[in-house]
Design a binder for these strands. Structure first.
Length: 583
RNA sequence: UGGGCUAUGGUGUAAUGGUAGCACAAGACAUUUUGGUCGUCUUAGUCCUGGUUCGAACCCGGGUAGCCCAACCA
């Protein structure tokens, strides 16, 4: 029988995913003395994206749910690529998502212990310094179908390896001249067991440890060891690390031996668990390619609302709750899935429906004159902020004789199915009156020389104002949103579409690179959507919404969910469309 | 063609030997001062093939397909 959990909102139940079930079992069995500790280990070499959000949600989520702690650990073993700028961005994004780490730690915190452990490995015949070139090493590594061969340096005396290893950290060894390798098995069917590299020489300063180190440990010789030293019990990562799993376990076992912990070796140790990473159709996720998009100016930066980065989707108008809602829906499995962005859109709609303030905005305006409404008269009408949440209250909206409505809400020959405005048709103006156009098109439509509609005329029913008894009258037409021409402000509206025209841009680009011998942006261009950004400056909005702070959640009534862009000012309000309304 | 992992409606995911369920998508109806939300309904699934079993999505054998592994990246 599957255990179920109930999230705070209490509306949905879902069964535990396989990792949560494992954690529950381990806790029940008293593994790791009943402790639970996880970690989120980003490399600070770029911005976090929605794929990281999936990892964050399980790393922090499991700790929260089962009473453990999750550390934020910067995986900073390669000073060549990493930068403190990214550390700050990563922290900001995790906090924005609503998660809290126990300790902020760094892989570089463990450099000294890792070094001491490496020396122990050398002295215990488990590591040696290799002086071959990287080409030679690659060649003798073999292939997946052919075994590798031993390095000529494999059996050099430990004292010699130790001397050279120490030499590697002096700055006097050229990068590439020497590496420290684990002595495991060159014939293993697991490529990672063919004497993996433990340390390499970089001769580069590190942004945290300065010039203390010239040789730095590799991922495989850092990750599990850091987990062990830190007290991590469940080290959760993506499926691509499955081939590293055995090596992770081996190094942890060695480390326990080094520390003299040879009892309860299986019950008390960090273990790695893998889940399927997030793939989204019409979306490109890899850091390397996202960097190209920013560098080539395809997007305006890491936080461009079309980017799948956390900062990008934040600016797009996604709420943290909406993102977590999406992550919850896709689940964690061992299957390499390609998720539909439509599911992500449904998830954010679901969340924004409960929190977005409804406002009136006209994004493609045409003038509407209420002929029988007194000239100069203005009424302040009441608009509900959110019908899903009464506590959000109301605001007022000004009504007058001359209005803006959506151009697409009027059709001269709309036919029966068109339930909006047209000759002889009656509609309701939201929060205001029922209005009607004359049967005679020439009496309700003004056109310019090219035949474009410039103005629409209608008459209103004074007894039908919202809240009055006459408002109860049933009519055939729909309810339209509107703005009073003299009581609204011009604004800029940015609508977005997918950046890519193909479902799986990563594979498409890879194939194009292979077939055409080009790389980078040239392989990407054929799949870029030229219409991913549409800027509309001929739009109006209620003054109420124009003064809202950046990142406010809005719904443009009958149109979609919008968000106040950080570029927005009261004089020049700017809005990003998060997602359209359904249907 | 070595090793590892995976396969459930169009998509994602539940069911661990006992009624194949949920969500999204698509379509229809109803309600509605948002063609939204809420509600009702429809369409549609266990990769193939043997076996074990009273009974198999689940266990076993053999296929097929996809993903990962041969960085001095993580």
């Amino acid at each position: 029988m599957a255990t179920t959990i109930t999230p705070e909102n209490g509306t949905e139940k879902r069964s535990l995913n396989f990792i949560e079930a494992q954690v529950e079992k381990d806790l029940a069995e008293g593994k790791n003395k009943g402790r639970l500790q996880t970690r989120f280990p980003p490399e600070p070499n770029g911005y976090l994206h929605i794929g990281h959000a999936k990892a964050i949600a399980i790393d922090f989520g499991i700790a929260e749910r089962f009473g453990g702690v999750c550390n934020l650990r910067m995986d900073d073993t390669n000073p060549q690529k990493e930068d403190t700028e990214y550390v700050e961005a990563i922290k900001r994004d995790i906090e924005w998502l609503g998660f809290h780490w126990g300790n902020l730690v760094y892989a570089s915190d463990y450099f000294q212990e890792l070094w001491d452990f490496a020396e122990w490995c050398i002295l215990n015949d488990r590591a040696y310094v290799d002086e071959q070139t990287s080409e030679e090493i690659a060649k003798q590594k073999g292939t997946p179908t052919e075994p590798g061969v031993d390095s000529p340096y494999r059996n050099r005396p430990a004292e010699e390896s130790l001397r050279l290893f120490r030499e590697m950290n002096t700055g006097n060894v050229e990068p590439g001249k020497m590496i420290l390798r684990a002595k495991i098995d060159m014939k293993s069917s697991n490529m990672h067991f063919r004497d993996p590299i433990m340390y390499r020489v970089l001769n580069l300063p590190h942004w945290r440890t300065g010039t203390k180190w010239n040789a730095y440990p590799m991922y495989d010789f850092t990750h599990g060891q850091s987990d062990y030293l830190e007290g991590v019990t469940h080290s959760i990562c993506t499926l691509e690390f499955v081939p590293h799993h055995e090596l992770y376990d081996l190094f942890v076992t060695w480390m326990k031996e080094w520390k003299g912990e040879t009892e309860h070796i299986e019950d008390c140790r960090p273990r790695q668990f893998e889940f399927n990473k997030l793939n989204l159709n019409y979306t490109l996720m890899s850091k390397r390619n996202l960097l190209i998009l920013t560098k080539e100016g395809v997007v305006k930066g890491w936080d461009d609302p079309r980017m799948p980065t956390i900062c990008g989707i934040r600016r797009r108008g996604y709420s943290p709750e909406g993102i977590i809602n999406f992550i919850d829906k896709i689940g964690y499995t061992n299957f390499d899935a390609l998720n539909d962005v439509k599911l992500m859109e449904a998830a954010i709609r679901e969340d924004l429906n409960t929190r977005a303030q409804r406002v009136s905005a006209v994004v493609n305006p045409v003038r509407l004159v209420i002929d029988n409404y007194p000239e100069g008269q203005v009424e302040e009408l009441t608009a509900i902020n959110n019908p899903e949440n009464e506590a959000d209250g109301t605001h007022t909206i000004a009504f007058s004789r001359t209005l803006w409505i959506e151009r697409e809400d009027f059709m001269e020959d709309g036919g029966k199915k068109f339930q909006r405005l047209g000759p002889g048709k009656e509609v309701r103006l939201k929060n205001a009156y029922i209005i009607k156009c004359d049967e005679d098109a020439s009496k309700c439509i003004e056109k310019d020389a090219e035949g474009n509609i410039t103005c629409i005329h209608a008459t209103y029913d004074p007894a039908s104002r919202s809240g009055m008894p006459g408002a109860d009258r049933k009519i055939k037409g729909k309810t339209l949103h509107w703005l009073s021409q003299d009581h609204c402000v011009p604004c800029e509206v940015r609508n977005y579409a997918c950046l890519w025209t193909c479902e799986n841009p990563r594979d498409a680009i890879k194939q194009y690179e292979k077939e055409n011998g080009v790389r980078g942006i040239d392989a990407m261009r054929p799949f870029l959507n030229p219409d991913s950004l549409q800027i509309n400056t001929n739009a109006y909005i209620e003054p109420y919404a124009a003064s809202l702070p950046a990142l406010s959640y809005l719904q443009f009534q009958r149109n979609g969910y919008y968000n106040v862009d950080p570029d927005s000012t009261p004089d020049h309000p700017v809005f990003n469309r998060t997602v359209g309304l359904k249907g």
